[in-house]
Design a protein around this nucleic acid. Structure first.
Lengths: 204, 204
DNA sequence: GTATGCATACCGACCAGTTGGTATGAAAAG
DNA sequence: CTTTTCATACCAACTGGTCGGTATGCATAC
């Protein structure tokens, strides 16, 4: 059976993600993943150099899929409107729909898991997490800069401030949502942020 | 040595907190705590029924100290101003100063740690975390209700929405701050929220 | 002299990681 | 077209070490 290489790796990554997002990385054993997939140690160590390598591949995979989702939402929002402010609103609404309708009972951010378990990971992984969040921020900065180029805010504000605030609200919303086990806290937070935007830019 | 009961327990709780806030709960072994304190298994299992009991006592202790801090800031803000909106602003400023001047190199919220490792804990502990966050929210709701009783917001908003937003922003700020290893991200988020308040309640 | 506050010594379970090996398929040699 | 060669993909069994937890003993305080 030298054919099922990629599916096997993805199968293990999926199982790993499931466990890590509910028990943390240290709380997830390799055996947990193997029991879930029906595979064995040999398969695991064939695809991963070790648990640290799993941590790396897992978060890289997460970042890739996450970014792809954001890019898709961004493109769709640009197709539906020419106004950057409206595009931001649309983007947020796509996100709200995604979080609320997720079949994941307790959605969360893997970056948050890693940062709250930071001592478990090597510098390379932690840098990747930091960089990924920074890249996400940069995307938002560019977006809000487009808004600021067209509309003058009621109160002086930088694109970076707004960009960071979006991420902060999302991350915080996810923490609360998980803690209370509900499905709409993050969505409500995003709505509040849109409220803030409508006050900052009354034109839109 | 039958005299140092309370100090010993607190010593272990302090060491546990230190490790849990940097490696997570599952990533923290009892031996880690014992090595830090110079104590032994006998001491640990004398004060804690097991690791699950440590989780319970640790978060209860955290909640107690956290609440005391909030109450103190609330009292001080009431002493310095009669205006509820100004009191909120003051409260946030105390918080910002606390986070920025903390000697903790990577401050964080223990509730967030527990939430992102939820499968590690029993229902009692998880309920306590949820309730603690709810209590924190309630305090904020009361506060913002006082504000809303005096000032009419430019856009319709409930006290609960604002209360949740504060916590969300703080939690999210802490995630970002830890991820990037800086000291002022949370503070900046709090400042942005104050900006939002000043737009909502232009009178203040 | 009895309860408290610890230390010592130990246990079974589980941990990440290793070993030796097998089945498979694709490419190269005949 | 067949046979050899060899890398890939995986498995079963095992290892040393660490985990949470227990049993016991012994000072000290009351």
């Amino acid at each position: 059976m030298a054919t099922r290489a990629k599916p096997t790796r993805d199968l293990m990554l999926a199982a790993a993600k499931k466990h890590v997002m509910s028990k943390g990385f240290a709380g997830t054993s390799i055996d947990d993943i193997l029991k879930d997939t029906g595979l064995t140690k040999g398969a695991f160590f064939h695809h991963f150099k070790g648990k640290a390598d799993l941590a790396r591949q897992l978060v890289v995979d997460y970042a890739t899929k996450d970014l792809a989702m954001f890019v898709a939402w961004d493109r769709q929002s640009r197709e539906e409107s020419d106004d950057p402010l409206e595009q931001v609103i649309l983007f947020l609404k796509y996100f709200e729909a995604y979080i609320s309708n997720s079949n994941d009972p307790a959605p969360g951010c893997m970056y948050a898991v890693y940062t709250y378990e930071s001592s478990q990971f090597d510098a390379e992984v932690l840098t990747f997490v930091s960089d990924s969040l920074a890249r996400w921020t940069s995307l938002n900065v560019r977006k809000f800069q487009e808004v600021l180029d067209r509309y003058k805010p009621v109160k002086p504000v930088t694109a970076r401030q707004l960009a960071e605030m979006v991420i902060s609200i999302v991350e915080g919303g996810l923490v609360l949502q998980r803690a209370h086990g509900d499905t709409d806290t993050t969505k409500r937070q995003s709505e509040q942020f849109r409220n803030y935007l409508s006050l900052l830019f009354p034109k839109g």
